[in-house]
């Protein structure tokens, strides 16, 4: 078994009186793609944001590289964050900088990489996601899918040990979801350790090495995609998956019914004698 990258133990987080995470424990191993699914308000995003300390956990521990980063000082936290990439739902590109500067800012400022070297690396990564020609553009000039691909590249430029994705396709128009998921699949194939919060069940089934179902601030179920999606479940997970599948069935059947009805209508119309 591959070495453990992140060891999370009994993690709790409250906002005031509201307990959002009620003690989660799991391990993320090198090269794993862990997908977190579950209903809204279940704690998926909060859990993810605790991993790179964008949210300070209330208690519990997260061991990364042999140190408990929950109790680390500010300097260590900054270093830890620089070793974890994060991709946001709303991209959060820097609108006042060109695409190239968006990507090279952190390597130059945080890691002290020379501009030339940083830009060469950025261009290579942009090439990999098919956006070389956008290097000198500004974020406003890009589509949502392009922005999210740039955001992924921006994280990759820091050569992170793990990539965190917080609903990376939720803010995209449907026709742009594919291009972003393709980049993520490519990353997974190349052995990147990834933790992904998503509602894309097909992506979870196809790419995940492990699926966590978060519900009510706890990990309610955990298993391989086959274990989660391939079998019938009791309780909340069953309900959740049923709802998701139901929605999909509804969409498909809606279309089918419409098409069949159209055909039947046409036949009926054809068979009908002229009224006038």
């Amino acid at each position: 078994m591959a070495e453990t990258l992140l060891k999370i133990d009994n993690l709790k987080k409250s906002f005031g009186k509201l307990d959002v995470l009620k003690g989660l424990s799991t391990e993320i191993r090198k090269g794993e793609v862990v997908v977190m699914i579950g209903p809204s308000g279940g704690g998926k995003s909060t859990f993810l944001r605790c991993m790179n300390l964008l949210e300070q956990p209330t208690s519990g521990s997260i061991v990364f590289d042999g140190i408990d980063i929950v109790k680390a000082d500010e300097k260590t936290k900054n270093r830890v964050r620089s070793e974890m990439g994060m991709v946001f739902q709303h991209f959060n590109l820097f609108p006042h900088l060109t695409i190239l500067d968006n990507i090279t800012l952190a390597p130059r400022l945080v890691k002290g990489v020379a501009r030339q070297e940083a830009e060469a690396k950025a261009m290579e990564l942009l090439g990999r996601v098919g956006l070389s020609e956008k290097a000198s553009a500004y974020p406003q000039q890009l589509s949502g899918g392009q922005k999210q691909r740039v955001a992924i590249v921006r994280s990759l430029a820091m050569e992170p040990k793990v990539m965190l994705f917080d609903e990376p396709t939720s803010a995209l128009d449907p026709e742009m979801v594919g291009e972003v998921l393709d980049v993520m699949k490519d990353l997974a194939k190349n052995g990147m350790t990834m933790v992904v919060v998503t509602h894309e069940m097909r992506f979870a089934r196809d790419v995940a090495s492990r699926v966590l179902f978060l519900e009510g601030g706890r990990i309610a179920n955990e298993g391989t995609p086959d274990e989660i999606f391939g079998t019938l479940h009791e309780g909340r997970l069953g309900e959740f998956l049923g709802k998701v599948h139901g929605e999909i069935r509804d969409i498909i059947s809606d279309n089918v019914v419409t098409r069949e009805e159209a055909r039947r209508l046409k036949t009926l119309l054809d068979e009908m004698p002229d009224q006038d």
Binding site: N52, N78, E83, G85, F94, P95, L105, S155
Partner: peptide, 29 residues
Amino acid sequence: DPGQMEAGRALGLSYWRTMLKIILPQAVR
């Protein structure tokens, strides 16, 4: 947008650096 600060911090920039390089240029504009 608070997402700008989060993006800067997530890349490993310190609070002041994010302020100086990312938030203030946009704020001044």
